[in-house]
Design a protein around this nucleic acid. Structure first.
Length: 262
DNA sequence: ATGGTTGTTTAACAA
């Protein structure tokens, strides 16, 4: 089984890129974030034609939006709401083998890393808290996978400069701590780091603002795949498709993250 | 220290 996740930053604008990923990588499942479209405009037909007939989507006008595309049937599609908003950031479904798959888009959190001065940062922290609380309170499936743009780069080498990023939203200690609490509540293994040592740089996102993203290489690992411990032994490999950042002059600022199970 | 880009609801936002 092969599963991919990608923050696509407008699925309609980059439909060709998604189709390219599906045709080149042929994942069994693709999870998308930042689809940025209401469901009536989601390119359902194009993905069905590409072999992904089974879809669970949750979109809205302009912002956010998540989707699960699958070659095989999925059941129990659910939408979760957090922080008393209905902003299309979390969906989940069951795969045929009973695995519960979550597709999550954590709020970015704005620029100022202070919840009192910045309501967007407060929202991000509360979102992480509520999600962690949910996994603590509710019984959950034995086999679990959580993927998505979690908008936090947790490890020192998940950013280009730990020292220079400590005060930058996505790598502040309070976010890293809350993401760790969420990961603990979910009881998940960080799949890419299962293979890549913590001392090695690993990024899934490069800013649009760099004059030359490849040359400056100031990346962050914001996109994640977590798997329950009973699935970690089945992990065969993971990949972060850096090349997708260069597939087109107008790419997403995020690249796909892929996990393969044996 | 600052500013740099992109997408959508083409005017501000959000990222």
């Amino acid at each position: 089984m092969k599963i991919a996740t990608w923050n696509i930053n407008s699925v309609r604008l980059r439909l060709d890129l998604v189709l390219r990923l599906l045709s080149e990588e042929k994942p069994d499942i693709l999870c998308l974030q930042e689809t940025k479209t209401p469901d009536e405009f989601f390119p359902t037909e194009a993905f069905a034609k590409a072999g992904y007939k089974h879809q669970h989507i949750c979109g809205m006008k302009g912002y956010n939006g998540v989707a699960i595309l699958s070659r095989k049937p999925i059941t129990l599609p659910q939408v979760r709401h957090w922080c008393e908003k209905q902003d299309c950031r979390h969906i989940h479904a069951r795969l045929e083998d009973g695995t519960e798959l979550h597709c999550v888009y954590v709020p970015a959190g704005g620029d100022i890393p202070d919840p009192k001065a910045n309501v967007k940062f407060a929202h991000k922290l509360q979102f992480l808290d509520e999600l962690a609380g949910w996994w603590k309170m509710h019984p959950h499936a034995k086999r679990r996978i959580l993927v998505g743009d979690l908008n936090v780069a947790p490890l020192e080498h998940d950013v280009w400069s730990h020292k220079q990023m400590l005060g930058v939203v996505s790598h502040t200690p309070v976010e890293v701590e809350k993401l760790a609490a969420l990961q603990k509540a979910f009881a998940g293994v960080d799949a890419p780091r299962h293979f890549v040592p913590a001392g090695q740089k690993l990024y899934s996102w490069w800013s649009y603002r760099a004059a030359d993203w490849r040359a400056s290489d100031r990346g962050r690992r914001l996109d994640h795949i977590w798997v329950s411990k009973n699935l970690a032994g089945d992990l065969k490999k993971t990949r972060i498709l850096k090349e997708a950042r260069g597939w087109t002059p107008k790419p997403s600022d995020h690249v796909p993250v892929i996990a393969e199970f044996g």
